[in-house]
Simulated scan of single mutants.
Amino acid sequence: MAFRRSHSLQLPIGLLSLLSTISLILMATFATTTTAATTNVRLTFIRKPSKILPVFREAPVFHNGRDCTKNLVHVAMTLDSNYLRGTMAAVLSILQHSFCPENVFFHFLWSHYDEEIHTNIKTTFPYLRFKIYKFDSKKVRGKISKSIRHALDQPLNYARVYLADILPVDVNRVIYLDSDIIMVDDVEKLWRVNLEGKVLAAPEYCKANFMRYFTDEFWMDPELSRTFMGRNPCYFNTGVMVVDVHKWREGGYSYKVEEWMAVQKQKRIYHLGSLPPFLLVFAGNIKGIDHRWNQHGLGGDNIQGRCRSLHPGPISLLHWSGKGKPWLRLDSRKPCTVDHLWAPYDLYRSSKRTLEG
């Protein structure tokens, strides 16, 4: 179709457009000034910061097998916009590999109410059984010490310390999981581990150099170094734990962890975030379980986040602990080999995929 050009305008169209825009601005300014003067109200325009959350495609529906009971498996995780993509992948992997997926009940903890995140979960997993709890960041205000990585200093990273205070009283056992994990086995197997009277169970790594998790000042202090006397302390990762919530409440373990956080504020006795106080309270006194339940360290170290390969042996859970996260490395097109094991569980719907239909 051909458009007829008008010759009746003596000024260039671009100039007319500019003049019209200026006129509109002056009129709007005059109207605003007049209104403000009339009502004696000072007008202040504040632009609300926009937060762009990832968009996810809807996950498949998973149903229970024939022999499933109605016994619930309680799983606790934190919710944070920066790790939401990891959380979604983790949830999908748990449901996909569970023989009784409808029995899995998720307890999510967040620092503040976020309608967008709540909507994301509901639309991605319409049939998910879950509840969200507010973790009051004031609980750890003034108790957190700066660590070697900023992400470890976030208040929500300490929510696991207060699980027993937050969860309903009828929840006697819970599996706590970080957001950067992928489950490739039935979560109920982990749920059923025999705690043998211990407060928590986790894979132990006794070949790790336990001393490096604490400063020289800690080991040189006669009183502090006696902390592990009578125990055979081994490293364990707090991103995968089975916790007897009832025993935790009875023993007042939230307070015991807090006591060590207070010592850290006075003397720098460790460099990491919430892990060392857990080790100080529990190391050498937990139920050690098979290493297959925490193939950890796939995110590399806490400084560089370099690629790491899988440890030998069977695998039930992959854990990208460390600085490098698989979704970030995949997006940057510089993935590690292990990141391709995470990719099939990624529900992220990029703008490119959306446009392509």
Rank of each mutant, 00 (worst) to 15 (best):
K143D: 13
W293S: 03
I52R: 03
V243T: 10
A208D: 01
G230S: 10
F105I: 12
W248K: 13
N302L: 07
I166V: 14
T354G: 03
W248R: 13
E102P: 07
Q304D: 04
R192I: 08
H291E: 14
D80P: 02
W342V: 01
Y127Q: 13
L195R: 11
I269L: 00
F125G: 00
P312N: 09
M77K: 09
A36L: 11
R353P: 02
N64G: 08
L347D: 00
L190K: 00
P233I: 08
A89Q: 08
R160A: 08
L310K: 01
K352P: 01
R329C: 07
M27N: 01
Q96N: 06
I303G: 02
L95C: 05
I94E: 09
S145R: 08
L95K: 06
K134M: 15
S254Q: 07
F228C: 07
E188K: 06
L9G: 06
Y176M: 06
T227Y: 02
Y127R: 14
H7E: 05
E204L: 02
K207D: 10
V281A: 04
G86L: 09
I13D: 12
A159D: 12
A59H: 01
V140S: 12
A283F: 07
R306N: 07
A89C: 11
Q295Y: 01
D165E: 15
F30C: 09
P314N: 14
E356R: 15
H107N: 03
C100V: 03
L317H: 04
S147I: 04
S81H: 14
I13K: 13
T124L: 15
L109V: 02
L167A: 14
S316C: 13
K131N: 06
Y113K: 15
N302Q: 05
F210Y: 05
M88K: 04
L16E: 11
K134D: 14
H291F: 10
R292I: 10
S137F: 10
V242I: 13
S309M: 06
I117H: 03
T354F: 02
P60C: 06
G239W: 08
D153H: 02
V257I: 15
P168N: 06
L109C: 03
